[in-house]
């Protein structure tokens, strides 16, 4: 079976010389297709750095990363946007919607940036917004939506084009307990329906029960939750 994520010996050092800081140290991290993994750990433990490397927005200093069998490490930087467009959907901590675009256009942008025609992009955006319960708010700007609603739009955007991998960074951080749980349940449900692999970075133990596996990371090393049965 091809792993959705196969990171081996991944390390990341920021800075150089006396100011060098090792954020990740020889991390092995594997996720099977369709699995929902939560990355947990204290602040500064390297969760977000690992998520950034998995999301091809940051390159590892060492080690090897494969997504769905496709080698990521060693690729030239100009290839990384192609990988992101092809394979990954993102849900950010602060929703990160484009303020000038309506909910529908935020979702459409992802689709059209992948070459989808305007008509098809509009239809898929509407369907996704309906699926997250925002059919009647698709023409609203992000500023006209509540925090929970914005994060729902962010989920619709992350799932636009059915990426096989969704990476979510603290998706509940900016929401109250109820909205946070609701949004994560929505994300979980929609990803499970689509067979999407999901990695969620979170501190929020109220959503841990939604995970297939919880991986603990501390001081740049994975301390618990490794996938069993994977050859080193």
């Amino acid at each position: 079976m091809t792993l959705a994520i196969d990171a081996r010996g991944v390390g990341k050092v920021f800075g150089a010389g006396a100011l060098a800081f090792r954020a990740l140290d020889a991390v092995d991290f594997q996720v099977t297709p369709g699995e929902l993994v939560m990355l947990v750990g204290p602040s500064g433990s390297g969760k977000t750095t690992l998520l950034s490397i998995l999301g091809c927005v940051l390159t590892a200093t060492e080690g090897e990363l494969r997504l769905f069998g496709e080698r990521v490490s060693g690729r030239p930087e100009r290839e990384l946007p192609v990988l992101r467009r092809a394979l990954i959907g993102f849900v950010f901590q602060g929703h990160n919607l484009i303020g000038a675009l309506s909910a529908r256009d935020n979702v459409r942008l992802v689709l059209e940036s992948r070459g989808t025609t305007a008509h098809a992009a509009r239809a898929e955006a509407d369907a996704l917004l309906a699926a997250v319960g925002l059919a009647d708010k698709r023409d609203r700007l992000p500023a006209e939506l509540s925090g929970g609603q914005r994060q729902r739009v962010a989920i619709a955007r992350a799932l636009a084009g059915s990426p096989p991998l969704v990476l979510a960074d603290e998706p509940t951080a900016a929401l109250d307990a109820h909205a946070g749980l609701e949004v994560t349940e929505l994300l979980t449900r929609m990803c499970r329906e689509r067979g999407t692999t999901v990695v969620v970075v979170t501190h929020d133990n109220r959503i841990f029960h939604l995970a297939d596996r919880i991986v603990h990371i501390e001081d740049g090393r994975i301390v618990d939750g490794r996938l069993s049965g994977v050859a080193a």
């Binding site: 927005v57 946007p81 993102f90 950010f92 990160n96 484009i98 942008l109 992802v110």
Partner: peptide, 9 residues
């Protein structure tokens, strides 16, 4: 930054 993250060059 978001536009870059979602795949714009």
């Amino acid at each position: 930054g978001t536009l870059k993250a979602i795949g714009l060059t």
